[in-house]
Computed example of a mutant assay.
Amino acid sequence: MARNHNKMTREEAGRLGGLATAKNHGKQFYQEIGQKGGEATSRTHDRDFYQEIGQKGGEATSQKHDKDFYRKIGRKGGESRNKT
């Protein structure tokens, strides 16, 4: 979207807000808010919900990517586990 009378688009404002937040907070901040969000979500959804969205996500991803994609990410995951 083009700017209108020097006004920022929502995308630009969101990006700048995200950059400012990242600059002011460290990894621990994001871990804490992620944990809080996960805890809140787990109270409102059951195991079946997560299985269903996981299956839908897997199906959508498999339609977008070929076997070579999965080989590459599997290799990267294996490499990162070996580093720890």
Rank of each mutant, 00 (worst) to 15 (best):
G78W: 10
A40N: 05
R47M: 08
A22L: 09
K76F: 05
G14H: 08
K27V: 03
S62M: 06
K56C: 01
E11D: 07
K64S: 07
R47L: 13
Q31Y: 11
G58M: 11
A2W: 05
T9I: 04
K83Y: 09
K36L: 12
T21D: 14
A60D: 07
K56E: 08
G34Q: 06
H45A: 02
G37L: 13
F49C: 01
K23R: 15
K64W: 03
E11Q: 09
G34L: 06
Y30S: 01
Q63D: 04
E32T: 06
H45F: 03
R10N: 05
G38R: 12
S80D: 01
E52L: 11
H5N: 14
K72A: 03
I73F: 07
T44L: 15
A40T: 03
G37R: 15
A20C: 03
G74Y: 11
Q55V: 03
H5C: 02
G38F: 10
K64F: 10
R15K: 14
G58D: 07
G26Y: 10
D48F: 03
T41Q: 14
Q28F: 10
G57F: 09
A60T: 07
G77A: 11
M8K: 15
H65A: 11
A13N: 05
H45M: 12
Y70A: 04
G77L: 09
A13Q: 13
Y30P: 03
G77E: 02
G14A: 12
Q51V: 03
M8C: 06
H5A: 14
D68T: 10
T44R: 15
E52Q: 13
T44S: 13
Q28T: 05
R10Y: 12
M1E: 10
M1N: 07
G17C: 05
L16W: 10
H45L: 02
G78F: 03
A40S: 05
N82V: 01
G58S: 04
I33Y: 04
F69L: 09
D66M: 04
I53M: 06
G14P: 00
I73D: 10
R81Q: 08
L16H: 10
T44Y: 09
D48E: 15
G34S: 10
G17Q: 14
G17K: 14
T9A: 03
S42E: 08
T21V: 06
G57P: 02
D66F: 07
Q55E: 11
E12S: 03
R43T: 07
I73L: 06
E79W: 08
Y50L: 09
D68G: 01
I73K: 11
N6W: 10
